[in-house]
């Protein structure tokens, strides 16, 4: 039985909301150069101004337009999220599918490793590693990807095992197809929804972690990102500026994360027949 997952997400009200938010955020990120009223990098002497027609969200401590930075920040956050999600999912796929297909001792070892990784809080590892490496954007993305794969690997393995026993896969095996061929032709296409769910989880985590690390001040100071904006805004909470500097960034961040959560949630509902029944009951 194949389910049309897009249809499911669109029919699910939560999923629909999630998609709308995500499309909006992605849209503003893409159109940032058009939408932004100002250049987000130019420093001007008009610092810490209240919202006005010229600066709808006021200006920050070095006179940069906050709205413009918010829009450009969406680019960094989403780009980080996207790259981390793809890299982490690729790792998950490599580990999970190979374990499922090869089996034996390899599978046992791999799953042991996955289980072990799962009980270590990833944020702590990132902090301690970042303290030594002092990562730029690229290092940060790599670091986050390296720590994000185990959860997905486990689910992908389970799915691979299930798919392996399906009729068409077994048929192709009897016809002498190698594991790589099976992976490419049968497993990956059928893993679609699992991979999507995994991508979304990865993206969600990346947005979160980037913000957290920026808050601790261990990321590259040159980038414009939401985490960095929060980090700078926090130094001026004694003024009223937090209302139009701190709050909008936090809300944008939360909305983005929430859109990921909602989409992921509706995907899970679509994949779990029992949850589906409840929804339609």
């Amino acid at each position: 039985m194949h389910i049309n997952y897009w249809q499911e997400i669109r029919n699910n009200s939560l999923g629909r909301i999630g998609m709308i938010i995500l499309v909006l955020v992605a849209g503003t990120a893409l159109l940032a150069p058009v939408l932004a009223p100002d250049d987000p990098f130019t420093q001007t002497p008009d610092s810490l101004e209240s919202p006005s027609a010229q600066h709808p969200l006021g200006t920050n401590d070095v006179g940069q337009d906050i709205l413009s930075r918010l829009l450009y920040g969406a680019r960094t956050s989403l780009a980080t999220a996207l790259v981390v999600a793809i890299l982490a999912t690729m790792l998950s796929l490599a580990a999970g599918a190979s374990a499922g297909l090869i089996g034996g001792l390899y599978e046992k070892m791999m799953m042991r490793l996955v289980d072990a990784f799962l009980v270590i809080p990833p944020m702590l590892v990132v902090i301690i590693a970042a303290a030594y490496i002092q990562p730029g954007m690229i290092h940060l993305v790599l670091l986050l990807s390296l720590l994000g794969w185990p959860a997905g690997a486990r689910i992908i393995r389970a799915q691979t095992l299930a798919l392996k026993e399906k009729l068409h896969v077994r048929a192709s095996r009897t016809f002498g197809a190698g594991p790589l061929y099976i992976l490419k032709r049968h497993i990956i296409p059928d893993l679609g929804p699992v991979l999507t769910a995994n991508l979304i989880r990865g993206a969600r985590r990346a947005v979160f972690m980037e913000a957290g690390l920026s808050f601790l001040g261990i990321t590259d100071p040159m980038t414009v990102s939401w985490g960095k904006m929060l980090y700078h805004a926090l130094k001026y909470v004694y003024l009223d500026v937090w209302q139009w500097w701190l709050l909008p960034v936090g809300i944008a961040l939360s909305l983005t994360v929430m859109s990921f959560t909602l989409i992921g949630y509706s995907l899970e509902e679509a994949m779990d027949p029992r949850l589906r029944r409840e929804k339609h009951a």
Partner: peptide, 11 residues
């Protein structure tokens, strides 16, 4: 609650 979950703790 989902909205709240989206906020970083420090925020």
């Amino acid at each position: 609650i989902m909205f709240l979950e989206g906020f970083p703790d420090f925020f």
